[in-house]
Design a protein around this nucleic acid. Structure first.
Length: 456
RNA sequence: UCCGGGGUAGCUCAGUGGCCAGAGCGGGUGGCUGUUAACCACUAGGUCGAGGGUUCGAAUCCCUCCCCCGGAGCCA
């Protein structure tokens, strides 16, 4: 790949389709190609990223999505119309520049464009985001513009890479993608956190908070399946680890037990991290991510039972009692000093969802696990072997006070050829956040939805 | 929902009882042919979150409400 454009490394895709195979033929030269075009006259289109003017000479840094380059506009090289156009430019104006690609040591990166003609395409004035510190509320109010800036572009590209890694991982292992519904009847993990909406004559519909219950029947049809899409939780959470709309990938595998489930999770997370390290290293550098922390993410991950975790927590001064779910502080105590994710498995039944399989060795617990990411990123995966005994599952549904009639079709999976099966859910934004080293989930998704944010 | 911090110019903030409320950045005008968050000069810009109260006098003290940030719980 060409090098030398201003900060352009982070904008280059490492997976570009050869031009002759693509029907997408840009009208103009892309900035990432400039280093191979020294001496030639080209036309660029893009946006003014930075701008400095010195009377009879102006320096623009132009961004086109493939890279950035400094454009030098000298009065003597331009006609009156072009020079007037330069005078009208401001941050984020769009423009068309024709000029000669030059090698120049004074230019950051060594290549610049000496403008011969400049045309203003779309003016921009009083662009709100300045090259200085801004408050998070202001930035989120301008999220649609904030996306244009360096860190955000890097995050979006890492997110995209992770999504590709996820789909490729499952495709390569013969999983079938099952798209589960977003509008559902009252079915999910627990009431009280569902978004509601009117649904014709059928009363209330709810936005899905998991695809799992729809996935289990599909596992009986296809063996290995997964779903990947947005899910919704109406929890009034105000923390760096929660969004009301987030993306979750959920595999479900027939004939897989809890131990195998953890092995799958370990392989999965390692594959994601490894692919980002392979293909998005420049973005990680732009994000100031400590790459050695990611390079340490290789199998195996330690596995610790919930009961052992409680003992360790007691040793470390916690007063948690057996039976309670682990809190944020407990997770921190357990993952402190670890460089890899940690599995905690076999939680108490009361702390977990109704569909998790009872543990034969200790019926107070269920066959489940969480995966806790290092560096304080907390739970990125929750998984379990599912209860495959019809009567035990029905009993649990009744104990939880869930509407039995809503789960009738779900119980059919146990009525007609029940089978051991397991699965898990990985939160995409938490994973993006961890891999990018972000301090809040809201930057890990293009348009975050939170308790008090629905716009833009 | 609970606990803590905050709301002053477009942005980031200073100002904690007393002249017409300040700075930097941004905006405008002028200058500058090698700038790197360019620089220099001049300039415009405010319902001090809202409402009520105390006081001779309130951005500053008190009450109510609204909004934002951080944390907890819940979870991915």
């Amino acid at each position: 790949m060409p090098t030398g454009n201003v900060a352009s490394v982070s904008d280059e895709s490492s997976l570009t389709l050869p031009a002759e195979r693509s029907s997408l033929r840009p009208m103009n030269t892309e900035i990432r190609d400039l280093a191979t075009l020294v001496g030639q006259t080209v036309t660029l289109r893009g946006w003014v990223h930075k701008l400095r003017s010195s009377g009879k000479i102006a320096f623009l840094v132009v961004r086109d999505g493939t890279g950035m380059v400094q454009v030098v506009c000298a009065r003597n090289d331009l006609d009156d119309a072009a020079w007037a156009a330069v005078g009208e430019l401001d941050y984020e104006a769009s423009l068309e520049v024709e000029g000669e690609v030059k090698q120049d040591e004074r230019s950051p990166g060594g290549v610049e464009l000496l403008a011969g003609d400049v045309r203003l395409v779309g003016a921009s004035s009083d662009y709100p985001i300045q090259p200085k510190e801004h408050g998070i509320d202001f930035l989120l109010n301008h999220r649609h513009l904030w996306l244009r800036h360096g860190r955000q572009r890097a995050i979006l590209r890492v997110r995209d890479e992770i999504i590709h890694a996820i789909r490729e991982f499952f495709y390569e292992r013969d999983f079938t993608l099952i798209d589960t519904p977003i509008l559902t009847g009252s079915i999910g993990e627990s009431a009280g956190t569902l978004f509601e909406t009117e649904y014709f004559d059928l009363g209330t519909a709810y936005l899905a908070q998991t695809g799992q219950l729809y996935l289990e029947p599909a596992a009986a049809a296809l063996g290995k399946v997964y779903c990947f899409g947005p899910t919704f939780r109406a929890e009034k959470s105000k923390t760096r680890r929660h969004l009301t709309e987030f993306w979750m990938v959920e595999p479900e595998v027939a004939w897989l037990d809890s131990d195998g489930n953890m092995a799958l999770q370990e392989e999965f997370v390692c594959a994601i991290v490894s692919r980002v390290l392979d293909r998005r290293r420049a973005e990680l550098v732009e994000l100031d991510r400590d790459i050695t922390r990611l390079e340490a993410i290789v199998p195996p991950f330690d596995r610790m039972s919930y009961s052992d975790a409680i003992e360790i927590l007691h040793e470390r001064g916690s007063d948690i009692t057996w039976g309670a779910d682990l809190g944020a502080e407990d997770e921190t105590l357990l993952t402190e000093g670890r460089e890899k994710p940690l599995f905690v498995f076999d939680y108490p039944r009361e702390a977990k969802a109704f569909y998790m399989k009872e543990n034969a060795a200790d019926p107070r617990t269920v066959k489940c696990n969480d995966m806790l990411a290092p560096e304080g990123y907390g739970e990125i995966i929750g998984g379990s072997q599912r209860e495959d005994d019809h009567d035990k599952l029905l009993k649990r549904i009744r104990e939880e006070g869930l509407p039995e009639e809503s789960y009738d079709w779900y119980l059919d999976v146990r009525r007609y050829g029940t089978f051991p099966h397991s699965g898990f859910g990985l939160g995409l934004e938490r994973t993006v956040s961890w891999i990018c080293g972000l301090d809040h989930l809201r930057e890990a998704i293009p348009y975050p939805r939170m308790m008090n944010r629905l716009s833009p």
